[in-house]
């Protein structure tokens, strides 16, 4: 932190006075304008308490203690609620940098999930049925995304003037991207009168139950990959 303030002071001193107001305006809204001009040797911040504890345990802290560190972004908090996946989803929902709205929408969807699950919980009669109901909306999100992640993908590859849809493995990152994208696509296909949080909540609950549009889409893709297995060798030939 102190590093960052020192760096900031340097910045302000270095610039001629007429650029100062512009900088101060930027500083008010977010700490640094987009791709920051931090030199390469600036370390990424380690903002989670668990990670810090790990560092201390493995006694690597002393190695990086002297290195300058980039300031953490506003969404990188040490709060108990911090969840990288939720953050990811919020960023996918976001349009034109309106993160506030995106976050509100996702949180509202969580609220809807929670309300419906709590009501179901109270309506359930037996303790076994109650135990089955998942109440944590974040867990439901994790489960929904895990259920809608594809394991294979089709790549168009041109051989002899014909484009074949060739099945192949998929990277972890792309499969996560596809899962979130499909969930949101399924949500946007809604009645005009239904609001985003409600529909998103339904989609998440469906996907967590291994039913619904998104899971079907994933299964269709798998089926297509299975059908096209004869083309698989085009991947390397």
């Amino acid at each position: 932190m102190s590093n960052h303030i020192r760096h900031l002071n340097k910045c302000i001193l270095r610039y001629p006075s007429y650029t100062l107001p512009r900088i101060s305006v930027v500083l008010q809204t977010r700490e640094y304008s987009r791709p920051t001009s931090f030199p390469d040797f600036f370390q990424n911040p380690i903002f989670r308490k668990e990670d810090q504890a790990k560092l201390i345990e493995s006694s690597e802290l002393s190695k990086i203690a002297a290195l300058p560190v980039k300031p953490p972004a506003v969404y990188e908090t040490s709060s108990v609620y911090h969840d990288p996946l939720v953050n990811k989803v919020i960023n996918h929902v976001m349009e034109k940098g309106n993160k506030q709205l995106a976050r509100n929408l996702v949180e509202k969807a969580f609220e809807n999930i929670k309300r419906s699950q709590i009501e179901r919980y109270h309506l359930a009669t037996t303790p076994e049925a109650k135990a089955k109901i998942e109440l944590d909306p974040k867990k439901i999100l994790h489960k929904a995304i895990a259920n809608s992640k594809p394991l294979l993908q089709l790549q168009p590859i041109k051989r002899g003037g014909i484009t074949y849809q060739v099945p192949g493995p998929i990277t972890e990152k792309r499969s996560l991207f596809l899962a979130i994208k499909w969930l949101l696509e399924a949500t946007y296909e809604k009645e005009r009168t239904v609001h985003f949080p409600k529909q998103f909540a339904w989609e998440l609950l469906d996907a967590a139950n291994n039913t619904g549009k998104v899971v079907k889409k994933k299964q269709d893709l798998h089926r297509q990959c299975e059908a096209n297995r004869a083309y698989a060798h085009y991947r390397w030939q």
């Binding site: 709060s79 108990v80 929670k114 709590i118 109440l135 944590d136």
Partner: peptide, 14 residues
Amino acid sequence: DRLWLRGPPEVETE
């Protein structure tokens, strides 16, 4: 009790 708030006790201070 009503399951509206869940999670570890640190949540409360926050």
